[in-house]
Structure formats: structure tokens, C-alpha cells
Design a protein around this nucleic acid. Sequence first.
DNA 1: TCAAAGCATGAATATATGTTCATATTTTAA
DNA 2: TTAAAATATGAACATATATTCATGCTTTGA
Lengths: 121, 121
Amino acid sequence: MNNEEKLDVCMDFIVHRETLDSVNKNALSDDVVNELAEFFKVFGDATRLRILYALSIAEMCVCDLCEFLGMNQSAVSHQLKVLRQSRLIKYRREGRNIYYSLDDEHIQQIIQVGLKHIMEK
Amino acid sequence: MNNEEKLDVCMDFIVHRETLDSVNKNALSDDVVNELAEFFKVFGDATRLRILYALSIAEMCVCDLCEFLGMNQSAVSHQLKVLRQSRLIKYRREGRNIYYSLDDEHIQQIIQVGLKHIMEK
DNA sequence: TCAAAGCATGAATATATGTTCATATTTTAA
DNA sequence: TTAAAATATGAACATATATTCATGCTTTGA
């Protein structure tokens, strides 16, 4: 391993220049990383996961979701807004009701990979 | 659709009983949902994502990561602790340095699915 | 057209979380 | 064995976020 440069981070010539070059060359852009973090953040909440998983089984109106989640309508609507803005769900109006469903084929895939992970560990 | 029961959530007979039965029957347990949320939460931070992506390219010591991330050592170590506790990374000591690497084959898979999602949207 | 149902949303609050600062721990070189 | 380097960690602080409360909007039935 090469230790060619002195850097602020460590006090000696410890940093691995080749590794850093390789990582820097292949790293994701800030924009992509931030978008990706925002995307995963949506899955990082139990309420939203339950909504997504429920919608993977059936289309549901807000009322249905409130009943299923055992939460009040405002809380559910706020989370639905987050999911809408992340384009993970879509909706259609039918009379006074609004029916939500999944809007992306990656969602179930991601949840499945996550499930596989926690099952195996 | 059947509207058989009156529920607190909505003021009329709007809730869809069949849908709810089906969703309740197939829903994930609270434990699994919470574990899954904790798992995804780890991916929902740009710093941690950058670390994971970097480690998918090369094994790195803390010093390397500080330099790559442009962050101080304490902040990096705190995030490494989160990643260790989630069992997403492992480490080995070599002298004074500690080298981190990925500890799970699902990590790259999940990041790839996420990337595919944000690219297509 | 008007009241009520279903849903959305802004503000407020409580809690969670990321970073910094100071310091502790472990290892090696002298 | 002792000082310094590399890393870890507890506490503090600032920010982000989930839920609640109050209220607004849209649609339908009377």
C-alpha cells in the first residue's frame, strides 16, 4: 500500500493513497447520494413500511389504512403525502374516497431484500 | 366491495371489510416491521451511504474514510458504530489501524435497486 | 345549495438523530 | 514503559421528523 501524502486527517502518512484514488474515482455524486438517502429514508419508518406492505396486498382508501394501522386520519394522510412525494404510491378518486396503490415495481423488491436480510441475520 | 361494519375511523360504512381482512391476514408482524424500519433507516443517511458505497469498492481504514468523506474522525467513527451495530460492516485490526469492509451481500443489492429507482424516475 | 363525509394540511410539540467537542482506549515505536 | 497515533465514545447541541390538533378543501346526497 502506498502512503505518499500527508493529510490533515491523520497525523502521519497513514492514509492509503491508492485506495482513496480508486474510491474517489468510482464514488457516487453528491446529488445521487442525497437522492438515494432521501429514497431510503422513506422506508426507514415503521408506519410507512406498513402502508407500503399493505398496498402491496390491496388497493386501499385512507379509511381502510387508518383502520389497519390503528392511527388517526391526519397522521395517515401526512405519511401518505410523504409516500406520494417520493412517488412510491399513486391514487385515484372514486366519489368521496381516494384509493391508494403502489406506483413502483422496485418497492416490493426492496422490501423483499430487506426482509431476506433481517431473516438471515 | 363489502361494507359490513361500522368503525370508529370513518363515520359511515365506508371501510372495506374484505380488503382489511386480506391485508390483516398477510401483514408483517410488529417485530419484523420495526426491525425492517431500523434496517432501512441505516441507508437513509448520505454519510452512511457514502461509507457503504466506498467500502463496496475497497476496504478502508478510518483515516481513509475521514479523508474521503471530508469529515472529522469522531463523526465518522460514530457512523461506523451505527453500521457495525446493524451488522452491515465488519472490521479487522492491523497494528494501529482498523480496516472496515462490507459484511453482507445484500447491501450492494439494495443500493443497486435504489439507484435503479432514482435513475428511472 | 348546504351539510356532512372523506381527505389534506399548517402549526405545534415531542422525540430521534447527526455532528461536534472533549476525552478515553488500544497499539506501536522509541 | 511511555509518548504518540489511530480509533472509540459519552455528553451536548442543533436539526429533522412523526404525531396531534385544529381547520380547510372537495365531493356527494338530501
